[in-house]
Design a protein around this nucleic acid. Structure first.
Lengths: 342, 342
DNA sequence: GTCCGTCGTTGGAACGTTTTAATAACGCCA
DNA sequence: TGGCGTTATTAAAACGTTCCAACGACGGAC
């Protein structure tokens, strides 16, 4: 019951100080045209003097305006997602929105928890890279009134908008490149198989094999890593090498960090000589070109991806669901060039 | 803006469906022990059936509970800040808090805008890497009741808590290493000079010179880049080389991305031969070891930095301000080893 | 049989805004 | 002078929740 110490200056206090009513202060803030210039300056003075800061929570409750957007990516530390996030953030800033971020680590339960948190928070929308392939929860969320844009996954025919890069094409490009150099035994390092983009890239890889008249099951060997980062890939390839006693001829990794993990695993075992093992990554992160062995990779328009997603989210209310698909691009560097074996 | 579906289910509707009062539904959600088990299941059923989602905004307004924290870093794409952010996020998740992120790009105005946005949003606290050296606005913010933890800057004697790494020591370590190898002309590549950590590292660098009996002004040449990333450094060093026609003997860059920019600038001009130019970076990002020329760098405990900041923020209300200082560590790799000149 | 404590529930007040309908002041025209 | 439209302001009603004081029912102690 101790009063005063609660501290926060409210609109009422400002009103009293300026000798006007609550409503007038509110009008000064939200509809300046409705209020006399003199009173306005008097109110502004009081605001300044008292250090009043509008309580956005109360404001949101009454007015229903939303100024925040949530995003969930698989792991913010992955440069691909970092760039995408920055793209979202930049576009939102133009509309004075702020972004709440979360990493699901590919865990559907974590994703679900954050979605609920965001929804309760009353976000104006959600940009999400789905952890699983089931987007039912997202459709429900959208049905309850929170706009959803799905990122990095295309959902033809869905009621949700999506922005993605053609992963089948990306996988095809990578394999096409390796096959063109004569490699016919290729290890594919993936994370959890239920991730959509992994499956699409694999599909693209298989298509490339078939178009060369090869049996994908004989060409491709999938190696599953525990995590989607360099440590996971290093461990997976390390185990493969240690157990089989042989060194892979060519490796296609699901992202550049994993490709780097592959390079590291081989280098640590002194198996990584120029031209011995071809490595192709994915994402073409900034640093791909600066590596000990510069990395061949698949480039995606990351910043644009995020910005576009934010743009769709903020677009004036529910239009038709929109499916945007960007095209990836192969960037060849040293890591995949060399004397092909077999 | 976003127009939600009209039909949001409220607590009242659930209450009616379950044949109880509003208060009881609220109790089921917030104080389950107070309510009879039978009624509880009946209410839960109704919640399930109607797809009720608690309106967190209204909840926050009445109860004053805060479940979100804001963070402002210089640039989320910089791996150092990405790791720190992830550290914050991970710690917050243990308390069911979510993180709102923003990048100030070192711009005080941008920072101020985000701070205001966060405050209005009613965040439970703010973790901020200050863009300028003036933390007055932050002190005021804290005074108005929003806990603030300052990151990557130490504020001895301030009323604000801070978590930082000893940047003077970091700068000293870097220079000590270069001087020990005989380099006596060292270019320092920085971003905007008003950034505190830049100044501290420079101070450490000067101290190292003095302790070797050298005049810092003769040893060190500061090169200011427009941006804190690899592009900025590449441009700055490129200009230096093109204009002076000479190649730097040793370079100390303010972060690893900039160090990579330096390497790139020299390599593009075919001036980057082993042992010719020593380069030391800062941050020891994951990839520093995987570069074309593995990078000597100063390592900082990034994840722990963020986690500790979040921990202080969530600590049971205003204790004494706390100043945590971590120590950096020199990691020597090839980029700084070679035949010293002069 | 009365008194008291506990348990479960309830109606209504609060949280700090925005919004709306109502009011007051003023000048203008008939 | 009376009627009417504009403009500036106000008091009070929302928004959806949580909190609080109060209440009835029950059972055990005296």
């Amino acid at each position: 019951m101790v009063s005063g110490q609660r501290g926060t200056v409210g609109i009422g206090e400002v009103a009293r100080a300026a000798g006007v009513s609550n409503g007038t202060v509110s009008n000064v803030l939200n509809h300046p045209s409705r209020v006399n210039a003199d009173t306005a300056t008097r109110v502004h003075e009081a605001i300044q003097r008292l250090g009043y800061v509008r309580n956005g929570i109360a404001s949101q409750l009454r007015a229903g305006t939303r100024t925040t957007v949530g995003s969930i990516v698989l792991d913010i530390r992955n440069p691909f997602f970092t760039d995408v996030t920055r793209g979202i953030e930049d576009h939102l800033a133009t509309a004075d929105f702020t972004l709440m971020t979360a990493s699901s680590d590919g865990d559907v339960v974590r994703e679900q928890r954050f979605l609920r948190l965001f929804e309760e928070q009353g976000v104006g929308g959600v940009v999400v890279v789905p952890a699983g392939e089931d987007v039912q929860r997202l459709v429900e969320l959208a049905g309850r009134g929170t706009p959803v844009v799905v990122l990095d996954v295309s959902l033809p025919g869905s009621s949700l908008s999506s922005v993605s890069v053609d992963d089948v094409e990306g996988g095809r490009l990578a394999l096409e490149h390796l096959l063109a150099q004569g490699y016919e035994r290729i290890d594919v390092v993936t994370g959890a198989a239920e991730v959509r983009q992994t499956r699409d890239r694999l599909r693209g890889a298989r298509l490339a094999c078939e178009s060369h008249g090869l049996d994908p099951d004989r060409v491709l060997s999938v190696r599953t890593a525990r995590t989607l980062d360099s440590a996971g890939a290093e461990e997976a390839i390390g185990r493969l090498v240690d157990e089989s006693g042989t060194c892979p001829h060519a490796v296609f990794a699901m992202n550049d960090l994993m490709a780097i993990g592959v390079q590291r695993a081989l280098r640590r075992r002194e198996l990584y000589e120029p031209g011995r093992t071809a490595v192709v990554g994915y994402d073409d992160i900034d640093l791909a070109a600066e590596l000990l062995v510069p990395l061949t990779s698949i480039r995606q328009p990351t910043h644009a991806l995020g910005a576009r997603a934010a743009e769709i989210l903020l677009a004036p209310a529910s239009q038709e669901a929109e499916q945007v698909v960007f095209q990836p691009e192969l960037v060849v560097r040293e890591s995949s060039l060399g004397t092909a074996r077999r």
